[in-house]
Amino acid sequence: MQAIKVVGLSKNYEKFVAVDNITFNVEQGDFFGFIGPNGAGKTTTIKSMLGLLQPNQGKVQLLGEDITKNTFQQDLGYIPGEANLYDNLKVGEQIRYFAHYYKSIDQGYLKQLKQTFEINENKKIGELSLGNKKKVAIICSLMNKPKLLVFDEVSNSLDPLMQKALFDELIRLNKKGVTIFYSSHNLEEVQTYCKNVAIIRSGKIIKIDSVEKIVASVGVQVTIKTKDMLDELFLAQHKVQPTVLASGAITFVYKGNINALIHSIAKHHLSSIRIADVKLENIFEEYYRGDEQ
């Protein structure tokens, strides 16, 4: 079953087209990344997808039901870019307030979440840092054991320990079949945790594929140190554009027979070589540049 089905979704603000006739599916059990530059339409897509904004056109199904039926709420966990909490409530009161929206809450799981994210239930929301507010929002989004999680920039104010705690829990839930729709500017997170990804630019989906296929299609990142400089013949033969790093090493993206490359490099008194996947950050820069042209 498709956890998310979006068909022909558009959202305009007067003459400005924020989301432009996009169509995509997210299969049940996927950990799906959603990325794009600022102003690309990520948040507008999410809010339209969840029925928080009225789209100009298009249809959306969540967990097999049209969003107009509003039957998905009990099985949804959602965190917007800015946690919508009540500053005058204590943390414990805020959690109980959201708990009333659900038919049932596993109190044992809720206790576990409180311990994992190290919250102080007696503090007022208004006294919390952005990171601690985000931890409360995470607990509120997970405590109903949702089948679908939709996160919009959830980790950006968490410290490294809490980021690890968050992703440990998300991985555990995803292995149990929970679908995760993860919008983020942190491309390292997307590359590490997401199975599939959609890239949005200027309101249009310009690429949807598995992270693995996107990375493999580009080639590998080769970083080498040699005792002499690579000559122009080598560069032309292997069609690479090297960058010299501050350490003196040379790095470039290579798509071809890696054994032939190593054999060729060895003629240049090789000191060290490192071969790794290309970072999504470098790949997606090519897609993002389309806005500048």
Rank of each mutant, 00 (worst) to 15 (best):
V197N: 08
A198R: 11
I200Y: 01
I200Q: 10
R201L: 14
R201K: 12
R201Q: 09
R201I: 14
R201C: 13
R201A: 10
R201M: 11
S202F: 01
S202K: 12
G203R: 01
G203T: 10
G203I: 00
G203M: 01
G203K: 01
K204P: 02
K204R: 15
K204Q: 10
I205A: 09
I205W: 05
I206N: 10
I206F: 04
K207H: 06
K207N: 08
K207S: 03
I208Y: 15
I208M: 13
I208S: 14
D209A: 03
D209K: 06
D209W: 00
S210D: 05
S210M: 05
S210G: 02
V211R: 00
E212P: 12
E212V: 09
E212H: 08
E212T: 09
K213F: 00
K213P: 10
K213C: 04
K213N: 15
I214A: 08
I214S: 05
I214T: 03
V215H: 01
V215S: 09
A216P: 02
A216C: 01
S217V: 02
S217E: 09
S217N: 13
V218D: 03
V218K: 14
G219R: 11
V220D: 06
V220R: 12
V220G: 07
Q221W: 02
V222N: 08
T223A: 07
T223I: 01
T223H: 12
T223N: 09
I224A: 06
I224Y: 01
I224S: 07
I224Q: 11
K225S: 10
T226S: 07
T226W: 02
T226G: 12
K227A: 13
K227R: 12
K227E: 14
K227L: 15
K227G: 07
M229C: 10
M229Q: 15
M229Y: 15
M229V: 13
M229E: 14
M229H: 15
M229S: 15
L230P: 03
L230C: 02
L230H: 06
L230G: 05
L230T: 00
D231A: 05
E232D: 11
L233M: 11
F234D: 00
F234C: 03
F234Y: 13
L235E: 12
L235Q: 12
L235A: 01
L235G: 06
A236V: 06
A236G: 08
A236H: 03
A236Q: 12
Q237G: 03
Q237A: 07
H238V: 11
H238E: 09
K239I: 00
K239H: 13
K239S: 10
K239Y: 10
V240N: 04
